[in-house]
């Protein structure tokens, strides 16, 4: 039986990106930065404040910030991997034989999308799980009760807005890769794209005070989730519609 072609492309693409040292260490560094910052913030709060109403209130304040932190650090690796996808193929002259295979446009785009989405998704959900486990191990060893940080609205936010923004970043990079020819150029653009696209992800942290008002917390999260899904939908449709073998080959 033949393997799924999109999956074959995704695996090869991911391996190619990870073969670049600065991408590998960049991804690992950024992937671990979110959980490290979350755990460090929680632990320092615990050490500074004794149990009581102030401690409980601060934990509620921190919830939107923690969710934001975990979500945005998964967007950057996605931009780094996807920057290498089509531009990397162009730079090493492998685009022409790749496009000459029976891959459909859909299979090719899905493969390129999966190569960035899967590791970024693992980082997003893995980082969230690691943060919750690590902070509670420390809290419980200090005699504090179990705390869910990010909280339930935060986890929903991470689960919906995070993947949507990862897909938006990758789609944008696919669109951009048709216009640039050097990987270095693509990485510069990818950083800019990531910076622009993490703005909506920071929105909930502007409402730290909303932690005390759960209806405002939900409203903020829902607004950001909707915004992320809208950006994802637009960028994905554009990436699929504007993907053009002719243009890609002409620009190589």
């Amino acid at each position: 039986m033949a393997r799924n072609r999109s999956w074959v492309v995704a695996m090869a693409d991911f391996k190619a990106a990870m073969a670049l040292r600065f991408v590998k260490f960049g991804i690992l560094g950024l992937g671990s930065l979110g959980p490290i910052m979350v755990v460090a913030t929680v632990v320092s709060t615990v050490l500074l404040l004794p149990p009581g109403p102030d401690y409980d209130m601060l934990m509620l304040f921190m919830a939107p910030m923690v969710s934001t932190m975990l979500a945005l650090f998964s967007v950057i690796p996605a931009s780094m991997i996807s920057a290498n996808s089509f531009v990397g193929e162009k730079e090493q002259n492998t685009l022409e034989p790749l496009l000459a295979t029976p891959l459909t446009d859909g299979q090719l785009l899905l493969g390129k999308l999966l190569a960035s989405f899967i590791p970024s998704g693992i980082m997003l959900f893995g980082g969230t799980a690691v943060s919750i486990v690590a902070e509670n191990v420390i809290l419980m060893s200090l005699g504090r009760p179990f705390t869910l940080l990010p909280d339930v609205p935060g986890i929903i936010f991470i689960s919906l807005a995070g993947p949507a923004m990862i897909l938006a970043v990758v789609s944008l990079m696919i669109l951009i890769s048709g216009r640039v020819s050097r990987v270095y150029e693509a990485y510069q653009v990818s950083m800019l794209v990531a910076l622009v696209l993490i703005i909506p992800m920071i929105v909930p942290s502007f409402f730290i005070g909303a932690g005390l008002d759960q209806s405002l917390v939900w409203t903020t999260y829902m607004a950001t989730i909707l915004m992320a899904i809208a950006i994802m939908a637009v960028t994905m449709v554009l990436a699929v519609k504007r993907f053009n073998r002719d243009t890609m080959i002409r620009l190589t």
Partner: peptide, 12 residues
């Protein structure tokens, strides 16, 4: 191996 899979040559 990579291109064989893209061209749909079976794993066997």
């Amino acid at each position: 191996e990579y291109f064989g899979r893209l061209y749909g040559v079976s794993e066997e």
